[in-house]
């Protein structure tokens, strides 16, 4: 039995009320949407806020609709309310039509019940994960805690003052390849930040979301809908698990099969999703044939170095990088 620590549960009806509660209880409060990440973490005493602000009851955080594309279908964006569940994102007609890899990624998070609860905003803000962190208080205490929570030593690297807990969310890599942005709202106002710039390489706190901010919506440019996208995920059990490696790719390929643009993001390795470098240089202007797929997979392999931060052999995870990159690229070719 894992009990939650005591807290007060606030259910604001509006976003303004919610950010007000975050400000009022600053330092002792956290926002919660589906709770599928925060509740287990609270049961493990990784977070013990005295107040929780529930985000699921606010109409401002709901809805999926095309905005600003009236005059030109190539303009505007798809607005996805941050409190939309992963089930809703995975099954929504517009998401599936415009950004099938996003529907794929959302549909591959955890299992059905967790997708009915968890939200796209929560997936963006998912806490980093590590073998030495996602454990009970009893377990962590026995090991003398770790750098990310209550301790001074990182058991993964054994040295240094840098937490290397793994970014483990499925949808952000796809959102990055689609040039999506996130709208963050606080008592001070709102700001828009590219998902690409949302993450930092710090396993303790790996996003630029301030404690008083709420992710209110995700915007995906309509212009990105012309890209061919694919998402591949490695995990121990296909039905429920967090990723051990994910690959998201997006490309524009012309009528003759020649690559016009190409981007790839891998995650579940380090503390933030990694944009694969050196791809454009070898791909743009060339046909996406098997030789190019091999070359791109080799470039990806050379720059990915998994650590012992997740419960799976790092050498195996590294060996799977080119395998999964090739799968994703072949799907793009046949799309």
């Amino acid at each position: 039995m894992l009990r939650l620590p005591p807290f007060r549960y606030h259910r604001p009806a509006t976003l303004a009320e919610a950010v007000g509660l975050l400000e009022e209880h600053g330092g002792d409060v956290m926002p919660v949407a589906g709770g599928t990440d925060l509740m287990p973490n609270m049961k493990h005493r990784l977070f013990t806020p005295g107040h929780l602000v529930a985000l699921k009851g606010m109409p401002e955080l709901k809805g999926v609709e095309v905005v600003g594309a009236d005059s030109d279908p190539g303009m505007g964006y798809l607005r996805v309310g941050a409190a939309e569940t992963l089930t809703s994102v995975a099954s929504h007609g517009e998401v599936r039509r415009l950004y099938p890899a996003l529907a794929d990624a959302a549909g591959h998070v955890a299992g059905p019940q967790l997708r009915n609860m968890g939200t796209i905003g929560g997936n963006l803000c998912l806490d980093t994960r590590c073998t030495y962190y996602n454990q009970t208080e009893f377990w962590r205490k026995a090991l003398g805690y770790c750098l990310k929570k209550d301790g001074t030593v990182c058991h993964v690297t054994g040295v240094g003052k840098k937490c290397v807990a793994a970014h483990s969310a499925d949808t952000p890599p796809v959102l990055m390849t689609l040039d999506a942005t996130a709208i963050l709202v606080s008592a001070a106002g709102e700001r828009e930040i590219p998902v690409r710039d949302f993450f930092v390489a710090d396993g303790i706190t790996n996003t630029r979301r301030a404690p008083g901010e709420i992710v209110a919506e995700i915007r995906i440019p309509m212009a990105s809908a012309s890209r061919r996208t694919a998402y591949e995920k490695l995990r121990a059990r296909k039905s429920i698990d967090f990723p051990l490696l994910t690959v998201a790719v997006a490309a524009e390929v012309d009528d003759t099969g020649v690559v016009r643009s190409l981007g790839g993001v891998v995650t579940a390795l380090g503390s933030r999703p990694r944009e694969l470098s050196g791809w454009r240089e070898i791909a743009v202007g060339h046909p996406l044939d098997e030789a190019l797929v091999d070359a791109l997979a080799e470039r990806a392999h050379a720059q990915c170095h998994p650590l012992e931060n997740l419960p799976a052999d790092p050498e195996w995870r590294r060996a799977m990088v080119p395998v999964f990159v090739k799968r994703a690229l072949r799907r793009i070719r046949s799309a």
Partner: peptide, 21 residues
């Protein structure tokens, strides 16, 4: 009791969810 096993599944407004979380 932490969202892995599904033993606590109940139906809320028609959707299966985990009561433990």
């Amino acid at each position: 009791d932490k969202g892995d096993c599904g033993a606590c599944t109940v139906i809320v407004d028609g959707e299966p969810v985990l009561a433990c979380l």
